[in-house]
Design a protein around this nucleic acid. Structure first.
Length: 345
DNA sequence: AATCTATTCAACCGCCTACAT
DNA sequence: AATGTAGGCGGTTGAATAGAT
């Protein structure tokens, strides 16, 4: 024999919105008897409701300390951060936002945050660039933009002179160069808004993205092998013109880190500030929903659900400074791109 | 002003786990 | 040990509301 049932289906219990009178009864009951047994609460309170319904009403609306109203910017950022770590563990997220309930956060995510992330090409589930967008549909705009800028060919030609083994790096070069083309200003593109579909498609799938270590190691090694660039030949043929070498500023270093594209003594880091992920202490600002996929350690303590130290990074540093309301501005886009540009392949 | 459409969010549903019997 | 429920959780629904036409 188990326990006696909580809510008898045949009881004809009331459903739907709670009345102020029901709220009053429930509140009085819980304050008087506590909430140790929700099964007993309806009877004690004189409510024709299921205990489960009472518990939900209490935890979401009646219990003391509930914070109502709009989420602050800080809360928004925190939710994004926590969601990137915890996924749809709404109760765990709510536990870290005083006064907010899991239900409220869940609703907020599904109606606001989810939409915002989708709009900027971020998959709200994985927190990585969306992969459901069509690269090939975007190729014409890619080529147009590349032709206009007309300075990428030398990137690849120079790179081909180097030795090879880093196909991933090569793709990254292309990606970064293209991002540059698409975002570096109104002088070369008709609008200051990048081609989202293209960017998203270029970002690739989470399964094949470079791991942080690999990425970092390759980028900081000026002697990296680069014959993998050969795969780009079809695209390369479109990229005519003489251009500057893509230079990537290295955080924490006085010099720029050139990304295997030959010498570039004079190039400044001007627009390439966009590509700061190559810093020696760089860590991706977005994390996979499956951190282990990159060889890392799950940052969530499996025993108590707490957030532990990430093995390689503080996973959401960048997100904290990302103002989603600014995404319609050029500056906003650059921030986004900075956040996601560590992804590739 | 009326109607239609989109959005929000409170509440329900069903599943899972821990625990009482 | 087996059984079956309570409590908790995430997903989903649908009524209420806001905005557009």
């Amino acid at each position: 024999m188990g326990r006696a049932p909580c809510c008898n289906a045949e009881a004809g219990l009331k459903k739907g919105p709670w009345t102020p009178e029901e709220d009053r009864l429930l509140k009085e009951c819980v304050e008087k008897h506590g909430n140790g047994s929700w099964r007993r609460v309806p009877k004690l309170a004189g409510l024709n409701r299921c205990g489960k319904s009472c518990r939900l009403r209490w935890t979401n609306y009646l219990r003391p300390g509930i914070k109502r109203g709009k989420f602050s910017k800080e809360e928004e950022k925190l939710i994004i951060n926590l969601h990137s770590l915890l996924g749809n563990k709404w109760s765990s997220i709510a536990a870290r936002l005083p006064g907010r309930t899991d239900n409220e956060i869940k609703n907020f995510w599904n109606t606001h945050m989810r939409k915002k992330l989708l709009n900027i090409g971020i998959d709200p589930v994985t927190h990585k660039p969306r992969t459901d967008l069509n690269l090939f549909a975007s190729i014409p705009s890619l080529l147009l933009a590349a032709n206009n800028i007309g300075n990428l060919r030398s990137h690849f030609d120079n790179a081909l002179k180097l030795q090879a083994d880093a196909a991933n790096l090569a793709k990254l070069q292309l990606l970064q160069g293209l991002l540059h083309v698409l975002t570096s200003g109104a002088t070369t593109t008709p609008t200051t808004t990048p081609n989202l579909d293209l960017i998203s498609a270029l970002m690739g799938s989470p399964q094949t993205s470079l791991c942080n270590k690999q990425y970092e190691g390759i980028m900081l090694n000026s002697n990296s092998n680069l014959s993998g660039l050969a795969f780009m030949n079809p695209l390369n043929s479109f990229l005519n013109g003489d251009g500057a070498v893509a230079t990537v500023p290295v955080e924490g270093s006085s010099s720029s880190g050139q990304v295997g594209l030959g010498s570039n003594n004079g190039a400044s880091a001007t627009n390439m500030d966009l590509y700061t992920p190559l810093a020696s202490n760089f860590t991706p600002s977005l994390v996979s929903a499956s951190p282990a996929s990159c060889g890392g350690v799950n940052p969530i303590n499996s025993s108590d659900g707490s957030i532990g130290e990430s093995p390689t990074s503080a996973p959401f540093d960048g997100w904290e400074s990302l103002n989603l309301d600014d995404l319609n501005t050029d500056l906003g886009w650059k921030d986004v791109l900075k956040q996601i540009s560590w992804l590739n392949t």
